[in-house]
């Protein structure tokens, strides 16, 4: 069912060494892997399972429980729209609709051209600027539905 890759990449070995013997380190290792690859590729999980002697099922059980971990490569630009309470009250659902319409994607999906990934998040910590969205960490505050197109086209052009 799964390709058994026997070669282990050096990054994974270093990582494994760093955390080996520390109790309960799986989640921390997954964080580091995701920081490196942008998601947690299956063959990396497989190598991790062999190296740390943890069943693959245990690793997947953890990855799929936590929203933060991704199993698919993200788009080049991640659009995160805040649906925290303050943003919700000030019209964030409209922004989500707008992005969905414009890019023809759902929450957690990547557009066909691989350019944009849409995430819905809870509170970016700048509720004073609600509604807030961020594109690859760049924050846009007090966004109006009509402004979404402009923000996205800026990134399309850059590409």
């Amino acid at each position: 069912m799964c390709s058994t890759s026997t070669t282990t990449s050096p990054e994974i070995s270093t990582l494994v060494e760093k955390w080996r013997g520390k109790k309960g380190s799986l989640i921390m290792v997954l964080h580091e892997l995701q920081n490196h690859y942008g998601y947690v590729p299956r063959d990396v999980s497989l190598q991790l399972s062999q190296q740390l002697d943890i069943p693959l099922a245990r690793i997947y059980e953890v990855i799929t429980f936590y929203n933060y971990f991704k199993l698919d490569p993200p788009g080049k630009y991640t659009i995160a729209i805040c649906l925290g309470t303050a943003c919700y009250l000030k019209g964030a659902p409209d922004l989500v609709d707008e992005v969905k319409n414009l890019l023809d994607i759902g929450e957690g999906q990547t557009s066909k051209d691989g350019l944009f990934h849409l995430d819905v998040v809870r509170c970016l910590g700048c509720c004073g600027l609600a509604p807030v969205l961020s594109v690859n960490g760049q924050i846009y505050g007090k966004v109006k539905r009509s402004e979404v197109m402009g923000i996205l086209s800026k990134y399309k052009k850059e590409d």
Partner: peptide
């Protein structure tokens, strides 16, 4: 430091403990 991974329920004490232990936060 141990990092959370986007699960609200991990704010609950026993779930948080499970998460630090490297498990699903139930």
């Amino acid at each position: 430091i141990r990092l959370g991974a986007g699960a609200f329920v991990c704010g609950e004490e026993t779930a948080l403990i499970a998460s630090i232990e490297g498990k699903r936060g139930t």
